[in-house]
Design a protein around this nucleic acid. Structure first.
Length: 272
DNA sequence: AATGTTTACAACCGCAACGAG
DNA sequence: GCTCGTTGCGGTTGTAAACAT
């Protein structure tokens, strides 16, 4: 039948490299509306000149609303170290135990910080010259690591600190234009029915059961969405009370699937 | 201030696993 | 059971920002 493995995409016809905000918006908007049933066909349907693989990666590693988007806490780092001891380089397995963290992120943290730290600790231990002060500082349970940022970051600050994803929302007209583009009737012709699980995934941000920390249990699904929006608002400089009230009222009013209101909330932010 | 070096992380690549036909 | 298409995973690279000289 086949004459060898088909390439995942025609590399001469797809864009590569860093994603532009337009592309991000197209992807977010499309997935919000239709989910991601088929990554291969998604870029075509969403009007993106990207490989499906690239879209998947961008969504999973960067655009997904349930990502924590902050520096790793010491607790998380210790978890990674422990899990790495038992699983090795099974990053996805490790990521499944750390809600809101991606395998790619964990892998990066491992290579840039943890590996070095461990090896320097080993060195120090073998030399018997471990600095006790440094150690006690490192083992402080509430300390938060800062890669290139302040070490005195609160949890709240931490959550919004690194999220630069939506810097580009500054040009609201771009975004509305983008939504309209995705609203094109020809793009609405979806060849599949959206699996309810897809909505559950995006809307509920369900974590694997065994990955839920007590804290994660406390946070309702709606809180997660709210968090995401607050982050977004913060990025947009739209933290005024009226905007938040509108969003809250909007959330309270939602009945069936909260998911469509997510997109509506985007519009709310834009019209603000 | 200019230049070189290091760090952090987003993105790509290729392979393996899996499921459908 | 085999083939092929698609997705997921882990390793690696590219590059912008931060830092040092």
């Amino acid at each position: 039948m086949g004459k060898g493995r088909a390439p995942c995409c025609d590399k001469t016809k797809v864009k590569r490299g860093p994603w532009s905000h337009d592309e991000d918006l197209k992807l977010i908007s499309f997935i919000h509306k239709y989910g991601h049933e088929n990554w291969r066909s998604l870029p075509i349907q969403a009007g993106l000149l990207r490989c499906g693989k690239s879209c998947r990666l961008r969504w999973i590693n960067y655009l997904r609303p349930d990502l924590k988007r902050g520096n790793f806490t010491l607790e998380e780092e210790e978890t990674i170290i422990k899990l790495h001891q038992s699983f090795g380089n099974k990053w996805s397995k490790i990521a499944s135990k750390l809600p809101g963290r991606t395998d790619n992120e964990i892998k990066n943290v491992w290579h840039t910080h943890l590996k070095k730290r461990l090896s320097s600790k080993d060195e120090a231990e073998t030399k018997g010259s471990l600095n006790r002060e440094e150690m006690s500082q490192e083992s402080s349970p509430n300390a938060s690591r800062s890669c290139g940022g302040s070490n005195n970051v609160s949890k709240e600050d931490d959550d919004v600190q690194r999220g630069e994803t939506f810097d580009y929302f500054q040009d609201f007209s771009d975004f509305t234009g983008m939504l309209q583009e995705v609203d094109k009737p020809e793009l609405l012709e979806m060849p599949f029915d959206i699996d309810p699980d897809v909505w559950n995934f995006i809307d509920g941000f369900q974590q694997p059961e065994n990955s839920l920390t007590p804290k994660a249990h406390q946070e309702s699904e709606v809180d997660e969405v709210d968090k995401w929006f607050k982050n977004l608002e913060s990025e947009l400089g739209l933290e005024e009370d009226d905007c938040q009230q509108q969003h809250q009222q909007h959330n309270e009013a939602k009945e069936d699937s909260p998911f469509p209101s997510l997109l509506e909330s985007y519009e709310l932010l834009i019209n603000h």
